[in-house]
Structures are given as C-alpha cells and as structure tokens.
Design a protein around this nucleic acid. Structure first.
Lengths: 139, 139
DNA sequence: TTATAATAGCAACAATGTTGCGATTTATTT
DNA sequence: AAATAAATCGCAACATTGTTGCTATTATAA
C-alpha cells in the first residue's frame, strides 16, 4: 500500500499534518468513517469544516468513496485500488452496519448479485446496506 | 385496500384530519415520502413536529416502514400487507432513487438475492438503494 | 527569500430531526 | 349533554450534520 504523503503528492495535494493523518487513518482502519468520528479522533487538530473539505477533496480525486449509512450520515472509505479510478468507481459492494458498535465496513468479499430492474428503469449506482452484528461484537 | 379511517381506528389512533390525510396520501402515491415532502404538501395543515410524530407512530404500529434515501433523508412507505406484521417486517426489497425527480419507490417486483455473509457476521436488516432514472423520467 | 496558490479557520447559515410542555381535541363515560 | 381522560397538536428550543463566504495562514515552487 502506498504511503499517505506519496499519495497526496501524486494527487497534487499539500502534505499538511491533518491531511496525512486523515489519509493514514482511512488506510489503517479499513472502515467507512464519518466526519463526526474524525472530529472526535483529531480533536482540536482541525476544524469541522476542514475535515468536511478534506473528505470531499479526497472523494473528488477518487481515492475514497462516499456512502450513506443507515442513520443517514455520510461515511467515506478507501477505494479498492484494483477497481476504482478517478473517472469510474466500482463500489457495488456490501456495506455492513453493525448495530452494536456502529462501525461500517465494506465487505469486499461479498459480491452483489445482478439485479434485474424493470425495463423502464436504468441503474447508475447501487448501495447495499446491511444491518446486523459484526465479527467483533459477536459474543 | 382498507380505508384510512378504519385503519386508524383499528390501531387505536384518533381519526384526526391530518392523520387521515397523511395515511391516504401514503396509500395513494405508492412511494416512500419524507417529512419535508409532507410539509410542503400539507402546508399549514400541520406542524413539522406533528408530521414527524405521525410518521413515527405509524411506523411503530407497523403499517409503514422507514428507509434512508441516498441523501440521508428518512422516507416512509406503506408496508406490503401480505408480508409485514407489527412484530416482523420484510422490507428486503429494492428502493429505487431517481436522480432526476428525486422520487423513491419500492420495487416489490425485484427480489433481492440471498447474500452470503462471512460466518462471523449476522444479518438483521437489509436495504438495497439503487440510483438511476425511473420510468417517468426516461426520455 | 519571496510569491502564490492551496489550505485552514471562523462565522454564519440551512436542513433534518428531537424533546419538553402547555393547549387543544377526540372519544369515552357519567 | 356535560364532564373527563387520554391522545394529539403546536410552539419553542435545541442538537447534529452539512454547506458557504471570507480572511488568515502555510506549503511549495520560483
């Protein structure tokens, strides 16, 4: 996995402390994280608005993707380097929302079967949100 | 389909004007509607808060179900009488979000294939949000 | 070292959603 | 029909998530 500063460099971003830390965090946790979570984690290191703008900027460059969790809160997760480019995203995987710990993880291993829509409907994007108990919270 | 006043009666709700109208509207449109939409439609007939409480009350009784649309806004749609009871909901259908008109419809005809999760994950609920263009907005 | 473009911070605002409480109203009971 | 009780409503206030405009700061290139 590429190091965060290098990624920022290649994308034309400045290597500021907060941007490096946010990106490293996203790489490490392998979960979909929200702005409020980042705000708690990086308390006082950056303004709320800064975090929102960092996430938007990263998403525009295609290194993270945005999903709505079951509470209607935006979450962002690293894109799978194999599948995503700046122009085209392939995030048609399962997003698992744990009702115990609230974590949201991308289950890349689970593939979404083909959905057959009525002819008059066209599909552009797809997000499968599953609620349940994650592996960490199973007793 | 049962008439709205009768449904309210059977559930122990009072037959107030706004409750009857909200329920009739949900029955008629066959879409998932949000509080902001109801507020526009029933302008000045009821307070914002009243609408939120009506939707919550209906949901608790199991006659409507709540879904998050792709914008993170809560929407409610009539439950399929054949499948849902007060205790158990079966809303594992597709929710289609039209990017043109913003409407959200439950595509009951499309069935969600079985999802195989890793053993350590347990599933309790499932919502498949699809974005695209609906039949009305196809040119 | 300087210049400049990107980034950050602050203030203000918007939208959705929730809670508490007093006022009103439906529906039951007397 | 009048009284009563419980459900419903409306208002005010608040919380959270998210956005925009503008100024100040800073990383990087020249």
């Amino acid at each position: 996995m590429k190091k965060a500063p290098q990624i920022l460099d290649e994308l034309g971003f400045r290597k500021t402390e907060i941007r490096i830390k946010v990106l490293e965090h996203l790489q490490k946790v392998e979960k979909a994280v929200s702005q409020p979570e980042l705000e708690k984690k990086f308390n006082k290191l950056a303004d709320r608005v800064t975090l929102y703008r960092i996430l938007s900027a990263f998403e525009e460059k295609g290194i993270i993707h945005k999903i709505m969790d079951v509470h209607g809160v935006a979450r962002y997760a690293m894109c799978n380097e194999k599948h995503c480019t700046e122009l085209e995203h392939h995030d048609e995987h399962v997003h698992f929302n744990c009702t115990e710990c609230g974590d949201v993880v991308c289950l890349d291993s689970v593939k979404v079967p083909d959905i057959k829509l009525p002819k008059s409907f066209s599909l552009s994007r797809l997000n499968l949100n599953i609620e349940g108990t994650c592996d960490n919270c199973q007793k």
